[in-house]
């Protein structure tokens, strides 16, 4: 779990996960498009995400595709959030979202 927390503690890596969440199964080239980061930096971040098992890769022909893997995040949720009632937490989170929407 240390690896997952460390990997998630970086904004650029969370941005890469967001991009995979929007479109799963991207190549390195696709992931680099429109980012301010260098290709080498993206490669390094992806290696850290893969080592933490937050990204899984598969080869399709000569292309290496990257997939977001949320299983470690579920393991974290089970360990700490499972003690509370998830329904109430979700209600609070929904309430926060709808109130914040009204503000803007």
């Amino acid at each position: 779990m240390d690896a997952a927390f460390k990997a998630l503690a970086d904004k650029s890596r969370r941005q890469l996960l967001d991009r995979l969440h929007n479109k799963n199964g991207q190549t390195l080239g696709e992931l680099c498009e429109g980012l301010e980061m260098s290709r080498q930096a993206v490669t390094k971040h992806l290696d850290i995400l893969e080592a933490a098992n937050l990204v899984a890769t598969q080869w399709r022909g000569r292309e290496k595709l990257h997939f977001i893997n949320p299983v470690p995040i579920f393991d974290i949720a089970d360990r700490w959030i499972g003690k509370f009632e998830r329904g109430r937490l979700r209600a609070l989170s929904d309430l926060k979202k709808s109130l914040e929407r009204e503000d803007t």
Partner: peptide, 23 residues
């Protein structure tokens, strides 16, 4: 799938499944 895999992992490693994954 993430819930199923998380539950399978706990079942095999600890012998039980946390209630949250079993919903």
């Amino acid at each position: 799938w993430p819930k199923i895999l998380s539950a399978l992992k706990s079942l095999l490693e600890t012998g039980s499944v946390p209630p949250i994954t079993h919903q």
